[in-house]
Design a binder for these strands. Structure first.
Lengths: 198, 198
DNA sequence: TATGTTGTTTACCAATCGGTAAAATTATGT
DNA sequence: ACATAATTTTACCGATTGGTAAACAACATA
């Protein structure tokens, strides 16, 4: 019932998200957020309260929006969907290295802050649940038809762990051939879960 | 042929290493390094040149000293050695959470800096080589006696990827039961490599 | 003992950090 | 039209950041 915002909050958050995602929290200054959003610092602070608040909202956005893009091909693809996810991962590293280097916003934040901030720990929990959930729901289809060797939970966990390992390795600047090798192994592991329907 | 140092450089590096290891690079100020080492900033700078230089030396120290402690039990333990490594990992998380939260200095640095600094990328390469080397040399014994299902390189790679995934998860503050579950899965995977000697 | 060389101490610096106070502006409810 | 309540703008702040200049102290050599 007063003057309305002139900018779209969601758009701003999206830009802030990408900024934190590519440079990390500590390494991005308010000035960077200003140029990423095109908004003066006072506007950012009046909308989000603090730099930490901006990170929280950025991660929430990542968790409810960006992550869907990443896992879109997995959700109902069965074992093949999971394997294809890792194939796509390798492909992105090869074709869009600057994108791949960004890794995952949540993983990056987890490592920057550790468990020092409960707000982040809780979001990290949600993240892991989301990732494993994607793998789980993909595997459940094959499991229901008796084509999965092993139980869904454990295999989804394993896929999750391997993905985290890959994120770290890519961020660390490992050579392309090494990434390809590791992805190949992950794919082999995933495909070894396939068994003749009985 | 002049005034000698009054402090032990290696000792200082060890303290600096632990400081960076537990708090990260950006989050530790020169003041933290002063109190960690007991040395005034000017002494640190005259010895190491810059904060980045201190990180480089810290990682070198980590790579040639701290890491040996971590992997000491793996090196010639065969498949069981690798499995025990993951068992010990779970045990440390349970019994020394503050230690476990530190994760790995190189992993943490990789994620903080990405591939932006060649000095770090090169050290990350050495790190991965060291980790895989530990797993490889452990597995080679069993492989030579025909007790390993699969080739040494790939399985060492897989162990490496799983370990990285665990580091990330622990740093992210995952609940103990989750860590235990993931470690259990890693152990199962490793033990599944064992095959009757022929 | 004089000198050159290095390490130590003290005090300091410019720059950047995240954050904010207050005035100016603009839509809304009455 | 007017008061109200919110946003935008501008300018600013204290604290901290990584880093250093210069005076002083100790050792080796000549």
């Amino acid at each position: 019932m007063a003057r309305p915002r002139e900018f779209d909050t969601k758009e701003a958050i999206a830009s802030i998200c990408d900024q934190f995602w590519s440079d990390g929290y500590e390494a991005t200054g308010i000035a960077d957020l200003e140029s990423a959003t095109g908004l003066a610092r006072a506007r950012l602070y009046s909308a989000f309260g603090s730099k930490q608040g901006m990170l929280y909202e950025a991660i929430d956005f990542y968790l409810e929006s960006r992550i869907n893009v990443i896992f879109s091909r997995v959700d109902d693809g069965g074992i093949a969907g999971v394997a294809n996810f890792f194939r796509t991962f390798a492909q992105i590293v090869a074709e869009h290295p600057e994108r791949a280097e960004m890794g995952c916003l949540v993983v990056n934040s987890m490592i920057e802050f550790g468990r020092s901030e409960p707000e982040l720990v809780e979001r990290a929990d949600r993240y892991r649940e989301r990732v494993r959930g994607a793998f789980r729901s993909a595997l459940e289809r094959d499991a229901a038809e008796g084509r999965l060797a092993g139980n869904v939970e454990s295999l989804a966990d394993l896929a999750y762990v391997m993905l985290m390992g890959l994120y770290v390795t890519v961020k660390g600047g490992a050579p392309l051939e090494e990434i390809n090798r590791l992805c190949g192994i992950a794919i082999e592991v995933v495909e070894s879960w396939q068994v003749e329907a009985r």
